[in-house]
Design a protein around this nucleic acid. Structure first.
Lengths: 137, 137
DNA sequence: AATTGTACCACTTATATAGATGGTACAATA
DNA sequence: TATTGTACCATCTATATAAGTGGTACAATT
């Protein structure tokens, strides 16, 4: 039911998410249905269990599936409403706006990237950069 | 007057910016003073002219210096007021707030990074990722 | 003619990190 | 006891890109 392409540039965990969402959308998987266990699916597809676990974890965060510990993973009761409402979509919109704001203020893309890396890495203040790609001259 | 450390992990263009700002702050360079030409300074320090040009360009954007085309570069008349008001400082504050917002919404740092890269690269919508570092499981 | 800042082209190197893999271990359960 | 999801340890590879180098070229000036 679920297949993956090892040669595709698309990450495996992402392929899994897409396929599971598709199955839900096409009613091949109904709310409450049990999903194959992480280890089982990993064995079937001959990939690492951690990769499957990653897909499941993100699908759970997006409320498409629901993990019930030792009992297994199941399609979320509101799965159909959440297929499109993933965080990425929201992030894309919000970040696009925020980046526009930075650019309008005169910041170069490199500067934005660097400050972002610092903030995400937890650095208080970047001492080591001011930047802008040199070809941006 | 201006020295650089080729072995420092701090980027050369950044060292230049810091030194020039310092000279302005210490009144070794006064508003209106002419700066050495890009090629001249590059020759003196034995580094590439593009590296100096990069420092000058960013200093001009931050209103610390002023380029007058063929006439050369000069210390900005309001330089002293702008030594601290560089974009990086502002970016750090704003981006820290924005990132907090993304995190509170449930986004992982990796997801934030990826969407950011997409937005900065000009990709409309990232098809190729959903992510979260696998060790984040 | 020489110099100014600036704008392209291309290239190398180093670092960060995303993606994936592997193993071990745990509590809760049937 | 076997299985569930989950957590933490680690390593490898590929990609992105920041930083720097190098060359050429231009208009505007003195």
């Amino acid at each position: 039911m679920i297949t993956i392409d090892l040669d595709s540039p698309e990450p495996l965990f992402n392929q899994l998410m897409t396929q599971i969402k598709l199955a839900v959308q096409q009613k091949n998987l109904l709310p409450g249905d049990a999903l194959p266990s992480i280890r089982q699916l990993a064995t079937d597809l001959d990939i690492n269990a951690k990769t499957v676990a990653k897909a499941y974890r993100l699908l759970e965060r997006d409320c498409v599936i629901e993990s019930k510990g030792y009992r297994g993973s199941f399609v979320h009761s509101e799965a159909l409403n959440n297929l499109d409402a993933d965080i990425k979509k929201w992030l894309n919109e919000v970040i696009a706006q925020d980046v526009s704001r930075y650019r309008e203020a005169g910041a170069t893309d490199s500067e934005i990237r660097i400050v972002f890396q610092d903030v995400l890495s937890g650095n208080k203040q970047s001492i080591v950069s001011n930047d802008t790609k040199q070809t941006e001259e």
